[in-house]
Design a protein around this nucleic acid. Structure first.
Length: 434
DNA sequence: TCTGGGGTCCTAGGACCC
DNA sequence: TCTGGGGTCCTAGGACCC
């Protein structure tokens, strides 16, 4: 059993903590450069403002409807998020922080009345942090997400669902008939994992509601769509397929990208932006104690403008894995010079770090790089190898030739027999210089 | 004039190997 | 040289999430 705790209209609620006068008013929080709305109060939603609506299309509502627009203040939101998360964690034993405003809590082993416990947590978050939140409970993460959607809709829109499901909704506590009615009242695109494209395809096939989707034949889903959607349907049926991730895995890619406030043309200006992106990305990389092997740089014009379009990216390999800002910036700028073309009106650029690895692997490789001799002994080498292989799986790192030819051949033969799927092949092994 | 900034996972197809 | 099966690796692109 899982709970999903989700802050309502999160960025707007954060702003209201410090400006209570905004309560009851239509409010939006705008993205970088005040480009578009990334959070809306209920009142703003009621005005028909869509998620991602460009500011220039809705600014007239400021005068006619008293819409208040605020520039985003991400450090503030991060801080309030931390406080909300630590309170939400009290609901169970394990927590996965899924996004800035949402966390899953594993409810297994939790005794007592789940509804009452949830109410306590909800009130605590409201009183101590000032953020209103909704809690959804279900057999699986997908059902908890769905329950949360129902809890929010029941609170915001009268008559959408039974009023007693507002704010806190435990789907597993409903009887069959009520559950079916609720699922039948929910459009299929509200399901976690069903986006616009798949929703349209499902509807074409006569699948309109969550109840329809829940009753689909698994083999058909897999055949006509994918294993991903099949997993979603299983989860809707109560079979847990997506585990709680209570320790956040290291990122596989780290990006820093921005739209410009106004079009940019000169290589000089782009270079300035790109080196800034590169060093910010490198900072994030160092925070996760990682090293990058490749740097991707991209530039693009605005797809929304009638001007000539240009969009290109390039990957520059690094000579050796690094988290050094200046090396990463050099690579990013090398890439930029390759793809830059004059005269275009560039709207956006970015830097992504790819092929990331933990620092520890690199350090151990450096240890392997040492020449045999003073300070070097086979035991140390082996324990380094063992550590790596324990941590990353057998066969992650193997020895090259340092008078261990016999070992090497035996390993190679074993590798060939096993042809393991996810271990590094012999040819790719870091080899010790002799 | 003005349209976010991050991420993940899966699949298909081609190159290549035994 | 021909034939075929089976496998891996890489890349591009699609779809989704907040």
């Amino acid at each position: 059993m899982y709970a999903l705790v989700d802050g309502n209209n999160f960025y707007v609620s954060c702003e209201r903590v410090f400006r209570p006068s905004l309560n009851g008013k239509p409010v939006v929080v705008l993205s970088n450069n005040d480009g578009c709305a990334i959070a809306r109060s209920n009142e703003a939603k009621a005005l028909g403002i869509a998620m991602g609506a460009p500011w220039f299309k809705i600014r007239h509502l400021a005068e006619s409807q008293g819409l208040v627009a605020l520039s985003a203040n991400f450090p503030l939101y991060g801080d309030l998020s931390d406080r909300m998360m630590s309170l939400a964690a009290g609901l169970g034993h394990r927590q996965e922080i899924y996004s800035i405003d949402e966390s899953f809590v594993d409810l297994s082993g939790v005794r007592g009345d789940l509804l009452k416990r949830s109410q306590t947590i909800r009130e605590r978050v409201l009183q101590w942090v000032g953020i209103p939140c909704c809690i959804g409970i279900g057999q699986t993460k997908t059902l908890a997400k769905l329950a949360n959607h129902i809890a929010k809709s029941a609170e915001r829109k009268r008559d959408s669902y039974p009023a007693e499901l507002a704010q806190i909704c435990n789907l597993s506590a409903l009887n069959r008939a009520t559950l079916d009615a609720v699922l039948a009242a929910t459009p299929v695109e509200e399901v976690w994992g069903v986006g616009r494209r798949i929703a349209a395809q499902l509807k074409e096939g006569g699948i309109h509601t969550v109840l329809d989707l829940t009753r689909m034949d698994l083999a058909t889903v897999r055949q006509r769509w994918s294993v991903v959607l099949e997993r979603t349907v299983r989860e809707l049926q109560g079979q847990s397929c997506v585990d709680l991730q209570d320790v956040a895995p290291d990122k596989q890619e780290i990006a820093c990208t921005r739209s410009f406030g106004r079009p940019v043309t000169a290589l000089e200006d782009l270079s300035e932006a790109v080196s800034e992106f590169a060093s910010r990305a490198a900072e994030k990389l160092r925070r996760q104690e990682g090293l990058a092997n490749q740097v991707l740089t991209f530039v693009r014009t605005s797809p929304f403008r009638p001007d000539p379009q240009y969009s290109r990216s390039i990957v520059v390999p690094l000579r050796r894995p690094t988290a050094d800002s200046s090396q990463i910036a050099d690579a990013a700028l090398t890439g930029l010079r390759c793809i830059y073309k004059p005269d275009f009106l560039y709207a956006k650029a970015g830097v992504m770090l790819m092929e990331l690895q933990p620092v520890s692997v690199h350090q151990s490789e450096l240890a392997l790089d040492e020449e045999p001799g003073e300070g070097w002994d086979k035991g140390r080498l082996m324990s380094a190898l063992d550590g790596l292989n324990r941590r990353y799986g057998r066969g992650t790192v193997l020895l090259g030739s340092i008078g261990l030819e016999g070992d090497r051949r035996r390993w190679a033969m074993k590798q060939e027999r096993r042809t393991p799927q996810y271990t590094t092949r012999w040819e790719d092994m870091p080899v010790v210089r002799t």
